[in-house]
Design a protein around this nucleic acid. Sequence first.
DNA 1: ACAAAAGTGTTAGGAATACACCCATGG
DNA 2: CCATGGGTGTATTCCTAACACTTTTGT
Lengths: 222, 222
Amino acid sequence: MSHPALAVTVDLVVLTVRADTLSVLLVERGEEPFLGRWALPGGFVRPDEDLPAAAERELAEETGLPRGLVHLEQLASYGAPGRDPRQRVVTVCYLALAPDLPVPRAGTDAADARWFPVAEAQGLAFDHDHLLADGVERARSKLEYSPLATAFCPPEFTVAELRKVYEAVWGTGLDPRNFHRKVTGAAGFLDPTGATTTRDGGRPAALFRRGPATTLHPPLLR
Amino acid sequence: MSHPALAVTVDLVVLTVRADTLSVLLVERGEEPFLGRWALPGGFVRPDEDLPAAAERELAEETGLPRGLVHLEQLASYGAPGRDPRQRVVTVCYLALAPDLPVPRAGTDAADARWFPVAEAQGLAFDHDHLLADGVERARSKLEYSPLATAFCPPEFTVAELRKVYEAVWGTGLDPRNFHRKVTGAAGFLDPTGATTTRDGGRPAALFRRGPATTLHPPLLR
DNA sequence: ACAAAAGTGTTAGGAATACACCCATGG
DNA sequence: CCATGGGTGTATTCCTAACACTTTTGT
C-alpha cells in the first residue's frame, strides 16, 4: 500500500528546580529556521530507533545530562501542518525531570544551552511555547498523585528539600510540619537511609531515597 | 538538512458501555498484514492533515460513528521498529469515548466492525493489545477526576445511568445513594434539565446534561 | 397495597488543618 | 544561651461511608 512519508522528531521538555524556581533547559538554535532563537532540545528519529531511545539519545547529545538521574516519560505528539516552516514534521514530545545539575554543555546543533525559569521562557521557536506549557502542566498534576517530585532531587535528600520542590512547581507555600507527616506516612514514597545532614543549619535532617511506590496513597493535593 | 521519512498513522481506541460492560470497537482486517485478524481502527495521516483531524476522519470512515457525540483525546504514540512488519510506522493513538450507539458499519479497509467486551479483546493485530490496555487504563483513571463518564452517556441521562458507567468501567459496585449525592454536589458536573423519566421503573428519575466543568472537585475515587 | 427505583437525613469514623510544643545542632 | 530549622502531639473541622428512611411511580 502506498502512504505518505513524514519527518518524525522527538522534542524534550527538560525541567529542574534551581534556586527554588521551576526551570527549563533551552538550546539556542545554530541553524535555520529560527536561527538564534531559543528552543526545546530535540531532533529527528532515526530509521531503526524506538521513540524512547531517540528521546534518550537527544537528551545525551544535546544536553549532556547523565541518563540514570533523569526521569523520562512521553508527553504528547504534535503534527499541525506548518508547525515547521521547512516541511511537514510530526514531533513526539517527552517530559524529562532532573535534579539541579551543573549547567550542561551545548550540543551538536546548538549554539548554547541554558536553564531558564519557566516564567521567562517565552517566544520559543516552532510551537515550543505550547509544548512547554503542556509539559509544565503535566509535571504539576503528576506531583499530586505520583512520587515524581523525587526526580527533581538528588539520590539522597531531606524532607525540606522535597517540600521546596513542591513549593517551586506549584507556586504555593506548604506547612513544613504537615508536609513532613504526609510524605513520611505515604507508603513506599520515601526510604529512610538512617543518615542525617545539617546542610541547612538547625537540627540535623534525616536523609531519604525515593521508595518503590508508583502512585501516592493518599495523594498530596495542591 | 536531510532526515529520514517515516510513515505516520493514527489508531483509535473507541470505548463504550454496552449492557453494563466496557466494550471496544474492533475492525476485522481486510488486507495483509494480519488479514482476518481483529484490530483497532486507524489509518495513515495525510500530508496536509493535522493529527486530531486525521483521528476524526478515521473515526468517521472506519466506524461511521457521528462526530459530535464522541469524545476524542490523544493517548500516546508508539513507534517501535518492527511493530508493523511491512515498514517503519509511528502511530499516534487516540482514545474515543462514545455512548452506546447502534452497531457501526464496516469501513473501507475493514471486512467487519463490531463491539467487543474489553475482557474478550485479545490477540489483536500489531501491538494493539498494548494500545488497548493503555486506553482502558487512561479511561479508568480519568473517570476519577474529570467529568468524562458523561461521554459514555446519551445527551440526557439519569444519575443511575451515570453510575452504571462508573461501575462498568471500574468493575466495582457503588452505593447508589452516596453516588447520587456526590455527583449532584460536584460543581459543574451535571446540569439538571427539569425533565424526568421512568425508563427503569420505580420513581421517575431526574434527567441531566453534562455540565461545563472540566475537572471534578472533589474527585470521585475508586 | 406492593414492588421497585429515586432521592434525603443521620451518624460514626477517619483524614486534613492549624498550631503548640519539643528536639538537636551551630555559633 | 540563643537562633535555626527538624520533627511530634493534639484539638478542631471537614469529608466520607454506611445505612435507615421517605418519595414517587407502575402494576
